[in-house]
Every structure is written in C-alpha cells, then in structure tokens.
Nucleic acid binder design. Structure first.
Lengths: 186, 186
DNA sequence: TTTGATATGTTGTTTATCCAACACATTAAG
DNA sequence: CTTAATGTGTTGGATAAACAACATATCAAA
C-alpha cells in the first residue's frame, strides 16, 4: 500500500482552517461565520479555502467527524468489537461532544449537526458489526447500524435534557444488556 | 511610501515558528531546543526555517525584541517622550517579561538574553531622547541611552532578586526623580 | 426598482514552501 | 582511533498557496 503521503502544507493548512473554525464557533453562531472570517483567522487566502473544502458546510461536516474520530481514537474504537465498554465509550464521546460544541454555538443548526453525527456513528457501528459477524452485504447489519446510531444519538440528547444530575455512564448503562442481547446478538 | 507588503505566507510562517519556539521554551531549556523541534511543532519544513532566520540565535533575538515591542506598543512608547510614567511602563514590561520568560527556561543563557534586552532598550531610549532634544548625531545622547538601558535592566534584575515583596512600580519610583533631573535633563 | 455593499465561488499566473540530496560538525559507543 | 547517529546549513527542481480579477448572489437602504 504505497499511499503517497499528502503534502505537509496541505495538512498544516487544513489544521489552521479547522482550528480557526472551532475557535470562531466559540464566539459566534454558525450562521454568522463567513468564509472570510475563517481565512482571516487562519491567515490563509480565501481561494485556498476552496482548494480544500467545497463550502462552509463541507468544513462543518469534516470538523465534526474529525473531532468525533479523535475522541474515539485510542479507546476501543480500534478493537472493532461491540461490547458494553465500547458502547459506553462512544456514548461518553457523543455526550461530551454535544455538551462542548453543538450545545452553545450552533443554535438553529442542531438538525444538520445531528445528521452528521448519526452518519458518523452509523459508519462506525457498521464496521464493528461487520468485524463481529463478517457476513458482508447483509442488509440487516446496515439497518442495525442505523438503529444503533439513532439510539445512541437520541440517548445523548435525552441525557443532556436531564442532566447534570447523572453521568453519561450511569445514564446509558441500564439499557446496554437489552441492546446486547436483543439487537446486536439476537 | 509604496512599501510592497510582505507575502501573507511569510507572516504566517514566521508566526508559526515564533509561537512554536515560545511554546517549546516553556518545556525545555534553550540549549536543548533544536531547529528540528521547532519546525516539527510549527509544521513547516526545516529548510523553510533557514529561509527566514539565520539560525536559532537569530530566532531568539527576534522573538525577544518582538515580545518586548508588543509589550510596549499601545502604551506610551508611541508618545516618544521620556517621563516618569513612560519609564515605569518600560520597567514593568521588562520586569514582567523576565519573570515570565528568561527566568525559568533559559538557565545558562541569561547573558545573551540580557544583551538582547539592553540592545532593544537602548534603541528605544535613543529614539525617545532624539525626539526630546533633536540634536541629531550628538554622541552624548547615545551614551545616555546606553546608561539608561543598563540601569533599567539592572534594576529589573535586582527587583527580581528582592521580590515578591514589592511591585515593579514601587521599586523603581523613588529613583525616577534622580534620573529625570540628573541624567536626562541635566 | 435601483444602488451599494458584502459574500460566494472560479481561474491563470506568480511565489513561498517542500523535498531530496548533499557536505560538514558534533557526540557517544565500541 | 573507527563507526553510527544526530544536528546544522545549503541547493535546484516540484508543488501548494497567494493574488488579482471576474461573474454571480444576497440583502438592506434610497
């Protein structure tokens, strides 16, 4: 696998853009952030932005997936097995992520963000299910992944609504046996 | 004055290098910091470093002057008049700067740093004296600037040795009348 | 409606940065 | 004394990023 590595300038520029976007998100709402704002903060040319991203929504999507992936890296996401510990880890990541980002700075864009998060979760769960059952092309695995992604995401929304009286772990733990026996392994 | 503005990439790269250097200085001593360390942290190529700086000492010098100038900008450095308030401001800048930077991370390089700071101070004082007396080419102004720079710098060293029982202002204030009447205006 | 101001995308040319390779110095280990 | 490893500093050819210019869209004020 000779994957000719990407130019360091590309990695640096993408990081500058993403970091600037995250930083701006802490001051303004998403709808008030322009491409010019981002490129000014990142000290790069506006044309360069379009060299890397289709538009500002493309950037949002990529930032969200990146943050999620980083939150899940180094934990059992690499283990590729669905188990109680893994689900709790993922749930914690989503819950904390929501609490830190989408909560405060993207009023009016929760739907978009929710869709992106669910899409990411779906991919992750589908990969894990494949590793566990290795029946490639099985449509039921995809459906299962869809349900898991909606379920976990929805739980994080409800957790946010109820807290801060309970931790993510405590909130999700009771439901896991049902998930494990009924859906995933049934 | 058509000063063809410098390429944004240049400004960005210099900032990345300087910021990385400052950040590394908070973890390592100066003598343990290599060019490779800096360029890795800054996400730029090592060759690019040499495009902007002669060597690591050149970088140190420029970082120090930049930090000093920034500390003094927006205050009465622009007023171009030597007075009690201005001297206190400068002294505070030096004292705080020492406390924050050269104190902890450059053991063994105090002499170099001291020289750089004094050089910067000398330039600043000379400019201020010129504005005040406008007798260009007068050698005595240069000597005065030299003495002021050594005096202020030395006072900051002594202040550091005695504190934290007293603020920079309180420390320097009693001496100012003598400076004003004896050296600057005498 | 018209006007001015501001944001979004796109394109050819110029330029700063990357890379690989090189010579040289320093330092530690065998 | 080698030898290996690591850091410094330089060079010519390849490429991402900057720039300027343009067309288009949006939106508030006249």
């Amino acid at each position: 696998m000779s994957q000719s590595k990407t130019d360091p300038r590309v990695l640096r520029t993408r990081k500058l853009i993403m970091d600037s976007f995250i930083q701006l998100s802490e001051k303004k709402e998403f709808k008030d952030i322009t491409v010019k704002d981002i490129t000014t903060e990142a000290m790069i040319n506006r044309a360069t932005f379009y060299y890397h991203f289709e538009d500002i929504y493309d950037l949002l999507e990529k930032v969200l997936s990146e943050v999620l992936l980083i939150n899940l890296k180094g934990d059992q996401f690499e283990n590729n097995e669905i188990n109680e510990e893994g689900i709790i880890t993922i749930f914690k990541a989503i819950a904390n992520f929501q609490a830190s980002l989408s909560n405060r700075c993207h009023r009016g864009y929760e739907d978009t963000i929710a869709r992106i998060i669910r899409d990411q979760l779906e991919v992750i769960f589908y990969k894990m299910l494949l590793k566990q059952h290795n029946t490639e092309g099985d449509e039921s695995l995809k459906v299962t992944a869809v349900m898991l992604s909606w379920g976990i995401y929805g739980a994080s929304v409800e957790w946010r609504r109820n807290s801060n009286s309970i931790t993510p772990q405590e909130y999700i733990k009771p439901a896991i046996p049902y998930l494990m026996s009924g859906i995933v392994l049934g």
